[in-house]
């Protein structure tokens, strides 16, 4: 009798444990946020912008970020015509300052530019600050899927506030909680018009860092590729870097 009971309990556990252990959309989003909330980081990367016309621009950029991408400082190292030009992006693109190496001046540019393309690339400022998932999106778990041969959670994110996108479909790595693929949709459209991909993920100081990031504009037939050349985690990054006056240094 006891054995029978134990067997019944055991089989119930076997059947229902996977369901019980499955994460909710809220939990997934929280884990994604945690994975993205790098306290401080310095990166050196190559940005290649390929346009529909066939032309391409290649830039070498040094970036410093704080609290995910809440604060960003970008400095152009190459080519010569833009070398030394730097940008400070705060509040998800709401406040941007530029330092022009040609004139040595720091100018405030673009208020509320989050929906604008960032420095000619296919990323908008909104895309670059897409780390505060819980706060900015309503998430729905669509199921599980495989992308780039990795098991993923498939989520639908609907922006809570005004955005360029009506919805996003995100495939997040089940182990690392890093978005591997994101499709962006405009209002009323069934086909995605932008696509974001990340790959070559390496865990550094327990934070997953993608060393290859691609944003494709499917309408324009253009794409921006960011290839990370160097990464350095800086947990105690100096907050004083993220002020306009620091741009001149």
């Amino acid at each position: 009798m006891k054995v029978k009971y134990a067997l019944k309990l055991f089989s119930i556990l076997i059947i229902f444990t996977p369901a019980l252990s499955a994460l909710s959309s809220a939990a997934i989003v929280a884990r994604m946020e945690k994975a993205a909330a790098v306290p401080g980081c310095r990166m050196l990367y190559r940005q290649v912008i390929k346009r529909a016309s066939g032309s391409r621009s290649v830039f070498k950029i040094e970036s410093f970020t704080m609290n995910g991408n809440e604060k960003q400082l970008l400095r152009y190292l190459h080519p010569a015509k833009v070398k030394g030009t730097a940008f400070l992006i705060l509040n998800s693109g709401d406040d941007i300052w530029a330092y022009f190496s040609a004139t040595g001046r720091v100018r405030r540019i673009a208020r509320h530019a989050r929906r604008q393309k960032m420095m000619g690339s296919d990323f908008t400022y909104e895309d670059m600050s897409m780390t505060a998932f819980k706060e900015k999106y309503k998430a729905e778990l669509l199921g599980e899927d495989k992308v780039f041969a990795k098991a993923c959670y498939k989520l639908k994110l609907i922006p809570k506030e005004r955005s360029s996108y009506a919805k996003l479909i995100v495939w997040t790595d089940k182990k690392l909680f890093v978005p591997l693929l994101v499709n962006y949709y405009a209002a009323g459209e069934k086909t995605a018009y932008k696509q974001f991909m990340q790959g070559k993920i390496k865990v550094i100081n327990s934070y997953p860092v993608a060393r290859m990031v691609i944003m494709k504009n499917l309408e324009d037939n253009s794409q921006t590729i960011m290839q990370v050349l160097q990464v350095e985690m800086k947990p105690n990054i100096n907050e004083d870097m993220f002020v306009p006056s620091y741009l001149k240094r």
Partner: peptide, 9 residues
């Protein structure tokens, strides 16, 4: 000069 750098980027 600044416009030129912005345009280049």
């Amino acid at each position: 000069l600044e416009l030129r750098q912005l345009a280049a980027i």
